[in-house]
Every structure is written in C-alpha cells, then in structure tokens.
Amino acid sequence: MQNAIRVKGLQKSYRQLHVLKNVDFEVEKGNIFALLGTNGAGKTTIVKILTTLLKKDGGQVTVNGFDVASMPANVRQSISLTGQFAAVDEVLTGRENLVMIARLRHLSQPREVTDDLLQRFGLSDAADRRASTYSGGMRRRLDIAMSLIGNPQIIFLDEPTTGLDPEGRIEVWKIIKELAGSGTTVFLTTQYLEEAEQLASRIAILHEGEIIVSGTLAELKKLFPPAKVEYIEKQPTLEDIFLKIIGNKKEDK
C-alpha cells in the first residue's frame, strides 16, 4: 500500500535550537495518525514542514507522493491544514468563510458545497452570524469544515481540541472519525493521550527531536509489562458526571 506521508531523517533548527534531530515515520493512506509530544517538542514544526509552510534543513519528506521541497504546489493540491488556532475570519459569517475557501479552491459550485457543509457540521442556524460570535467549539467546527472543502486527500489537524470544552472535544472527535471512515488520511497532533487512544490507528511519540516509539496502540501497550489484574471500584470521573448532567439538561428542554 502506498504511503500518504513519508518522512526520513528530517532535521530542522531555529538558530542554535536543534528542534528536529532525526525524525522518521510513515503514514498509511486512509489512517488516522497521531503525533504525540509535550509542548515545544516540535509537533507544530513537523506540521509546518509537511504543509509547505516551513523549509526543512535536511532529510526527505514526501506528501501524497510529492516531495515537499521540489513540488510544493502539488503537495498543496493534496492537503488541507487546520492550524493550532482556529484560522477563521472573524469578521465574516460562517457562510462567507466557507464560500471564500470554496472560491479559492476554484470549485464550480461554492454555494452548494457551503450549504452542504453547514448542514453537516450543525452550523446552518448560525450560518449568517459573524464568526466572532461563535463559541470555541463552533469556531473549531467551522475551521475543520473550511479544511474539508475540495475533498483534500490528507488533512492536518494541529491540536484540534486544545482549548475546547468536553462537549466540543467529543464533537470534534466524531468528525475526525467520520473523516477517516470516508477514506481521508488524517495527521493529528495532540498532547492529550486519551485523544490519541480514542482516534488514532497509529501513534508516534516525539521526544527531544526524535520519534522514540511508533506503532499501533496494541503494539505500544506490548512495550510495557503485561497488565496486572486488580479489582477496583469504577467511580464515575468528573467528566462522566459533567456530560451526564449536561445531557439531562438538554433532554429537559
């Protein structure tokens, strides 16, 4: 099977700071790949290099079969980026944001595509309100919807749930799962381990400029001694309680 992303011996420094020392990994087509790492580990740097926003210092990087250094235009045709901060135009309405991206992707029917996405992302009611009035979760949904226009084969999501409340996070997770279900390759960075566990078919951990482990969740679990069986009382977490109460409230309405 052809790989969607191949990275070999990737290096990048900012002046004295050697952020990426020797990064290797591959992402299969149609998979959700999660890149884990602490703040400042270099996750965003990798995303920027893969999306042609930043030049690498060394190594080989191909995205959808195209070399990022020599064929950046072809790479941009194949990908979509949802950056760390929701890059929506706050002065425009949700609808205007989507139409703008559809026009820039040179689609023949920007309005139809927009209506479709508004529906799919539950933004139809808020479509003609300015994005500055949206909640964090809505803004993120709009952001991801903008990235889906033109059906890119590979989608980059840089910490898509950072700063979202639990409800917003679960919504975004649902969207990502649906995406992968439809055959899109998803490259995800996150600092939440649970997120990687929930979503990713393959996980890589970036630490001090190198990928220290990578594999499926099952493979990563094997690296540790077998689980000891203990009997514990399962208490609901605060998150379970919060979501349950919120859920009840909604039903009451």
């Binding site: 926003l53 950056g83 890059a87």
Partner: peptide, 13 residues
C-alpha cells in the same frame, strides 16, 4: 497573527 495567512499559504493559490 490569527493564522489566516497560514491557511492561505497551505492552499494551492
């Protein structure tokens, strides 16, 4: 600052 330029620059324009 808000990343709009990054979005445009990662697009084929």
């Amino acid at each position: 600052q808000r990343g709009i330029f990054e979005r445009f620059h990662s697009m084929p324009i």
